[in-house]
Design a protein around this nucleic acid. Sequence first.
DNA 1: CATGAATGAGTTTTCATTCAT
DNA 2: GATGAATGAAAACTCATTCAT
Lengths: 192, 192, 192, 192
Amino acid sequence: MKTKRQIQKEATRKLILDAAYQVYADEGFSATTNQIAKAANVSHGTIFVHFPTVDNLISCLLERFGSEINEHLHLLSEKDESLETFLAAHINVLISYEDFYKRLISEINILPQEAKYVFINIQSVVSFHLNQVIERDKEKKAIKEIPMHIIFNSWLGLIHYYLTNNYLFAAGSVLTDHKDELILNYIKLIRK
Amino acid sequence: MKTKRQIQKEATRKLILDAAYQVYADEGFSATTNQIAKAANVSHGTIFVHFPTVDNLISCLLERFGSEINEHLHLLSEKDESLETFLAAHINVLISYEDFYKRLISEINILPQEAKYVFINIQSVVSFHLNQVIERDKEKKAIKEIPMHIIFNSWLGLIHYYLTNNYLFAAGSVLTDHKDELILNYIKLIRK
Amino acid sequence: MKTKRQIQKEATRKLILDAAYQVYADEGFSATTNQIAKAANVSHGTIFVHFPTVDNLISCLLERFGSEINEHLHLLSEKDESLETFLAAHINVLISYEDFYKRLISEINILPQEAKYVFINIQSVVSFHLNQVIERDKEKKAIKEIPMHIIFNSWLGLIHYYLTNNYLFAAGSVLTDHKDELILNYIKLIRK
Amino acid sequence: MKTKRQIQKEATRKLILDAAYQVYADEGFSATTNQIAKAANVSHGTIFVHFPTVDNLISCLLERFGSEINEHLHLLSEKDESLETFLAAHINVLISYEDFYKRLISEINILPQEAKYVFINIQSVVSFHLNQVIERDKEKKAIKEIPMHIIFNSWLGLIHYYLTNNYLFAAGSVLTDHKDELILNYIKLIRK
DNA sequence: CATGAATGAGTTTTCATTCAT
DNA sequence: GATGAATGAAAACTCATTCAT
């Protein structure tokens, strides 16, 4: 049972996180707390009521982002799904976070250490499911004798390459535009 | 015929570019002009004599970097070289620019537009040569029916993924540590 | 006849004043209202229910402090006490307020005007009693022909000098450590 | 041989220090860098070109102040000066620094550690000379058997008491108004 | 041409104070 | 009466850029 106060506070916190998410997605992580405050429609000082430092704000945001995306990812490899279906589902999840995810993988090296843990976490969830799908795959024998981590890293490498070089491939969302092509060809690559 | 002044000026310009290259490689592109001036052993103001703005400095640096790396890359696919040899040569070139290249691909989205042209340029040179090597390859028939750009992008994707996630794979240079593994498995992927 | 509310209010007010006393003694008068609220175990806003501004809180605190210390001081020069006994009693009172008193005399010039009145008040009480003791002193003739205010000011000067320069003379409480020396020598000074 | 540049730089540095001296004398050490910049008629940023932090500015200012006042003090006890002359000279020096000195002794406990060293230094110079004067004094035998440090501390105590409680004794400069009285009576105190 | 002191807009962070609950 | 989230006006400090020397 929450008081009106607590509800209000959490609402403001969410407001700030949502605004930060959008601002960082749009401008990259060098965006200022001022921009975020304006986007959240709260006073500048309010940000520091909820997050003692910018780094803490980013950490909390990443944590939330990590949980959220992982929840989505966990719903992926249900049952007897085919590899193709799984990869499509993965891309679909990424599409819904595309701009932010793009910034994250781009700027991870200039973000607080926390960011790397979140990132590793996301990757390990994807890795786990991909593993399962491939293991389960009736066509398992159809897949080349290549270490799992290479199979995984070449998928992520391909996706990330298209994301960070968005501008080369598409005006809007690369993933939306090239989804089918990427999946199709990636499967060709790993099949015998 | 250059005057003494012109010679001096060019020498200073080179000094600054060399310093900027090193500082950006070490600290990322958020390094300050002051740091660069110190590294170049010139006064802070001198930087702005040669480059009206920081963005211009970065653009010039990237242009030079592009030319230099492309020159190296052009020497790659001589004659009847095998695919394996070519990929090894490519990685070797990247190793000699590793720190800077890593920063470039990481932070490309927060760099001036110019950066993207340089980057596209570098990639097109690699692409061109890879194309040639594969076309010439006697074993051409051994390679899967996959569009060239996918073949190319999955190579770069794999390399870039290891570079930007260096911290996951190696303490020092990822490319040095994982060179053979990357080449071997990449070739497995694209072969029938 | 007080209502329950009034009783509660006064209790909270006391809570705040007690906390402020301790916090200011420990941290100096640049301590924040937040620190005081935490120490008082009340919410931040509560402070401003009882005291419209920080300056007002400080004024009230000083007023209370003044009354309290003066009450103690009034008990000093009972009967036929000797000068020595009086001075020892004075120092003993100060010892029980040492940290706060030290802050007060140190920072008086950056405190609200009110602080000065309180301070004058405390001093006049001490002055009054010192006067009495000396007047009554059988050895009165043994004391030099020096204006009373100088006699008084050199005593306070000496004490305050040791207090504000605590760090020069002692690790803990200067007054405790140098009490006897101060009294003894001060008396030597004012005696013929 | 100094270049025009160096002269200009030192001039600005002096401008800032002079302004800081005046602002701190007027407002106390909680005055802001903005106030100082305005008083010095330089931009806010300029302060940080010359002094990396406020604490550093204060330290430099105190160092300069210490040297300057000590130089003055060293000129004091020339030749066969009487105690009275020496004390008068000491007060005269303090008068020329009165407002700043007052702030220094008041707020010493909230200033950077450096401040204490400067202060100890000043005191030791005065102490040294007072010592000399008294030793040399033909009337030496006329002075009471009291430890030198008490003799010294009661003089400083008296002066500092009048300074920090200026408002009790005078509208303008206490030292100017009460100089003679203080000297006369202090000498009475320490004489047999 | 090179210098480096000066600039000022911009950054994150702090804190007394307010006010809806 | 008590609460504590929200406010916004400071604070110290940074940094690309300018310009007199």
